[in-house]
Write a protein that binds this DNA or RNA. Sequence first.
RNA 1: CGGGGCAUGGCGCAGUCUGGUAGCGCACCUGCUUUGGGAGCAGGGUGUCGGGGGUUCGAAUCCCUCUGCCCCGACCA
Length: 569
Amino acid sequence: MRTSQFLLATVKETPSDAEIISHQLMIRAGMIRKLAAGIYSWLPLGLRVLRKAESVVREEMDRSGAQEVLMPSIQPAELWQESGRWEDYGPELLRFTDRHEREFCYGPTHEEVITTLMRNEIQSYRQLPANFYQIQWKFRDEIRPRFGVMRGREFLMKDAYSFDIDPEGMQKIYQVMHQTYHRIFTRLGLETRAVTADSGTIGGSHSHEFHVLADSGEDPIALCSNCDYTANVEAVPTVGGEGAPPEGENPLTKVHTPGVKTIDDVCGQLKLPAGSAIKTLVVNGIDGPVALLLRGDHDLNTIKAEKMELVSAPLTFADLKTIHSIAGAGAGSVGPLGLSIPIIADHAVLSLADFVCGANEEAFHLTGVNWGRDLPQPKGADLRNVIEGELCPECREGKLQIRRGIEVGHIFQLGTKYSESMEATCLNDEGKITTLWMGCYGIGVSRIVAAAIEQSHDENGIIWPAPLAPFDLSIVPIGINKSKKVAQVVSRLEKELTAAGFDLLVDDRNERPGVMFADMDLIGIPHRLVVGERSLERGCVEYRNRRTGESEDIPTGELISELKIKVGH
RNA sequence: CGGGGCAUGGCGCAGUCUGGUAGCGCACCUGCUUUGGGAGCAGGGUGUCGGGGGUUCGAAUCCCUCUGCCCCGACCA
């Protein structure tokens, strides 16, 4: 390929609305352009990279025994009503009607479609196990799309759905997919970690996420310093102190706390650590409001709270009116003493003594509060997120470290969640009707592109891992319009290297060398050849490695064999 | 969904307060010079000033309205 035939849409200025490096570089390198919030066009350069990612995923899925299909991006509402997700999925589901006023959605995922498809095709256990995948554009109407294609609304996803006759079969495919995912990310040159996760709206029991560790990641990940436990923070179980709470020493005292709204305000005014106060969160429950108690320095884990019997899902906070009517005070002064609604306390709260809480009287708090003596001890539960430095729930020796990750893959054991509600069954070896056991396995293909850049770049631009690079190598001629010799050598090299199987980009724009160097660096081509009079006089061309920056002269006669080693063909 | 902000050439912005018929930088086009890390000189304007409505002799500018986009928050006790 020659740059004169190729849309090299590089820009010098960093776009003002791009916050993270991959977004900035994808714009600057001319890979993508925004069409609307969270919706992007892929330019030739970006598409080349996207296709590379796609083909690695496709090859490994095929190798695992999965079969490729392609399902519609537009799905009828009836399917989603059947599975119950038309109501459950919420505003992220992009809904619309056709001219006949029939309701549809743009598919954010394809469990319903594949289940419908396969309940008709799979009649017998002899057809199992089976695993079907597609690489398809999806749409999720994110609250706040950001970071370019990292959290776009439209994105390219590989999704696979497995079917088998029993849980053992489901788990077997799950394991195969687990290994396949490792293989895919390794081949793509991405350093990923498999982390145990909550299964979210997709449903099911057992699930792992695959994360690229990066500071710009949106998901907090907990890693154990001792064992190989790795989990999404939201999925880490926490445990309270054992035994009875310590005895309090201080008397129950009411203190005036004017104008305080937060735990930090209260503790700042009383000169106490946030961990010695408890916050009382009033949420909406099945039979009216429920109070959740957390230590002041802990955060509520919504997923855990939603699993409580009394709490409504999705979790919502009670409005101020309700809070006033049950506590007789504003949100900043609510406390568990004398509350007539059900109370659930995080385990950590129960091991506090002499703690601080709201007095249920505007602008007053209580100090020196103790369980048993001042109020009955409420029911304990796991309601919060772990924090850095806590004990690992697995080995109970190591301490948890919290880092950030970009979720690039997610695998689920769905069980019979969809097959049951949508009646996907087949006959087993005894001729009896059996519900299918399903798994589902996603990879964010377009997100992989952004994640790779987050993990591999420098001040000059992108540094592609070889399997994702849009071109294997570039040729930068110096004075191609001036020097016949340079032009001849470039033409000859272009032919020979192409014939030898290299995918190369020849910069024939006759730009100044600095411009060409800067562009080739920016778009991240792993290997570069410079052809100029200077080195040709010595019978050489100059080779430079994008990642290491090391360069060397290679005699033209040895070029192909030398490049095969360097490029890794 | 709540709060804040922005919308003027391909991109980034000034002009808006105080109405007078659109400008700067980059990019782009033409020519000459230059050619090993984002060149210099000269010439060129490629624009329904986000849409609609209103006020006015006259609107990018004032008023009303709609739309799009960005940032922060939505875990607050």
